[in-house]
Amino acid sequence: MSVLVYTENWDGKFKKLSFELVSYASQLAKMLGTTATALSIGEVEADELKKLGNYGAERIISVRNANLKNLDSQAYTAAIAEVANNIGAKAIVISNNNTGKSIAPRLSVRLKAALGAGVGQLPLSTSPFVVSKRAFSGASFMEVELRTEVKIITLMQNSFEITETANNANIEEMQVNVDAPKTTVCDVQRQTGKLLLTDAEIVVSGGRGMKSADNWGPLEELAGLLGAATACSRPVSDEGWRPHEEHTGQTGKIIAPNLYIAVGISGATQHIAGVSSSKYIVAINNDKDAPIFEVAQYGIVGDAQKILPQIISAVKEVKSK
């Protein structure tokens, strides 16, 4: 019996998301009176694997298999299901990112295990096993009972505090039987040298109120100073002022940074749906009645072109101290 947590790697490295997942699994294991086992698939060095132990994984299983070189949802499902059965997993924790979304539902069917998708906190109770998840695109939460013996939870990114623990982890290799994938990855395009929007703790975002693609300089400067990622609202990506990867909102990226700075964004329901899980929202908008101020904790009513330079110099001053 154990809680199994699947920790994806990016070119052999883990990131904050991985440690959030392990922290969550370890706390969940405590609630269930058991321990957490982390599963890594792919080529990850022992030193890197060992890091998972810093967040409460007592056992670290490493699976290397030529058929798992690329993400194939069937192959990964087969591998994780086999490991889950081997260790008698009571619960399985996976990220709610695109990788998790492609595996967890398949795993739910394969193991006949109820899936709580997009969970942001520990279960409200374990008997019955009830989780709270995002619903109606952030306008509500839904308490859902998972009614099977084995449970699967996908965790929203940036929703769980990382906690470091003493590291007692054992690393072991495990063999799995996986058929050759039926999908072939032909090419990969990576964003390099840029902080990913979904990983960022601070996000600076621009809307139609920025008026033109040429006005993004100060916004990018502010993001650079704050170590933030840049985002935008839907009209901005539709106009082609910014790449569509930056579109944040219901049909774009759903993010949950600690600080979201919305500049020239009025705050349509669809935009709020993508950012409502942010810890703090700052809004700068020339319309005092803009709905963004209803969800923001801090606001400035005025012209972004005049306000941004003042903010930039204030940040520079703070950072120089």
Binding site: A114, L115, R147, Y298, G299, I311
Partner: peptide, 29 residues
Amino acid sequence: SLTQVVKFDKPAPKAACKFVDADKAADLI
């Protein structure tokens, strides 16, 4: 079904927005 909805919860209301004067935007930081 493998799951059952128990109930829906509205998100906790957030505190009212604190406004900073546009001429003193640096105060925001």
